[in-house]
Design a protein around this nucleic acid. Structure first.
Lengths: 134, 134
DNA sequence: CATCTACCTTGACATCCGTCAAAACAGCGC
DNA sequence: GCGCTGTTTTGACGGATGTCAAGGTAGATG
């Protein structure tokens, strides 16, 4: 459970949620990644980096997209970095960030709904259960 | 953008992150789901419900798993419910929760790394870029 | 109707978090 | 070495959040 590289904790970590409950430790590590993505600015930053031409984005490409100060963007990038979602590389005065697709793939796989191993014969009306009125 | 049913906002919402940046609105909706999963207790609750026999769990199955008070569990379930991740149904004095697999599938799909449309010819050494030393 | 169990809501509190101004650090060119 | 640009860190502040005690609601039973 390395704090410096959450990927090490998450690789091979978890069956799909629908198959097996997470342990307290697994939930602790995985929730850190979700919490990092739980802010709209950070989520947009992640998507900007992931989809940027060349698979990486310079901080200078990111800061003007938001009406926020430089330190705020820097702070958000740090949160993403520490969650293991991105890696950064300095090239001269510029810093370029890339996403870690392996981590995203892992997290994505944990969320996948019940695999085709779902029990056959489930009553189809189960899907129509009413939502609780709050 | 219904506040009562985030699924309505997320269905068909988003290309994979790696393909296209999220808009501010998309990020706002999606980050709400991630924020809901960004707490270890809530993530464990979600996994317990998702993997429970019969695809649903009664609150009474959940409360003893944690060393937390009833109101805290209730609050967490509410957060998950309002994020659209679970639905609840009262049966007599008991309340049963189920996950919404369609929402999970959507969110999972957004996180999937670059699809097979990735540009061929990417230099393989790109994966070995060093992590910035903090 | 009274009593019970299960669950949810309210309000208070301590802790956490997003934001920015100021300061500091990293790298470059002269 | 100095001045510049780009980026990160630090510290303060206001707002958000996890937790629980107290209180309330929903449903079942006698």
């Amino acid at each position: 459970m390395s704090k410096q590289d959450p990927l090490a904790a998450i690789v091979g970590c978890c069956e799909p949620l629908a198959r097996e409950p997470l342990s307290a430790e697994q939930a602790m590590e995985l929730s850190r990644v979700f919490k990092a993505m739980g802010d709209p600015v950070r989520l947009r930053l992640l998507s900007l980096i992931a989809s940027h031409a060349g698979g990486e984005a310079c901080v200078c490409d990111l800061t003007d997209v938001f009406d926020l100060s430089g330190p705020t963007i820097s702070h958000h990038l740090k949160v993403l970095r520490e969650a293991g979602l991105i890696t950064g590389e300095r090239r001269g005065t510029w810093v370029y960030y890339r996403v870690r697709p392996d981590l995203l793939a892992q997290v994505s796989a944990v969320l996948v709904p019940a695999a085709p191993e779902s029990p056959a014969g489930m009553p189809p009306d189960r899907e129509a259960l009413p939502v609780v009125e709050a």
